[in-house]
Computed example of a mutant assay.
Amino acid sequence: MLVAALLLGPSAFQIGQDSPLVGDGGELPLPSVAFGLIAFGILMALLAITFAFRSIGKRH
Results as ranks from 00 to 15, higher is better:
G41A: 05
P20W: 09
F40H: 07
A34L: 02
L21G: 02
I38H: 10
L7A: 05
P10H: 12
L8F: 14
R54C: 02
P20I: 00
L7W: 12
L47E: 01
Q17H: 08
A52H: 12
I42M: 11
I42N: 03
L37Y: 06
D18L: 14
H60M: 05
G41F: 03
S55K: 12
L47F: 14
H60L: 13
G41K: 03
A39W: 09
R59E: 09
I56Y: 15
Q14I: 05
S55H: 14
S32T: 09
S19C: 06
L43R: 08
L37S: 10
G41Q: 07
I15S: 13
G25T: 03
G23A: 04
P31S: 08
L37D: 11
E27K: 05
F51D: 02
M1G: 14
R59T: 04
A45S: 07
E27N: 08
G57E: 13
L8S: 08
F40C: 02
L30Y: 14
P29F: 08
G16W: 07
D24N: 12
A45Q: 03
V3A: 04
A48W: 03
L8W: 12
L21R: 08
R59Y: 14
M44W: 15
G16R: 13
Q17E: 05
D18R: 14
R59S: 13
G25R: 10
F35M: 04
F35W: 10
Q14L: 08
L37P: 01
F35I: 03
R54T: 06
L43S: 11
M44K: 12
A12M: 08
L46H: 04
V22G: 01
D24I: 01
I42R: 14
A48R: 08
T50Q: 06
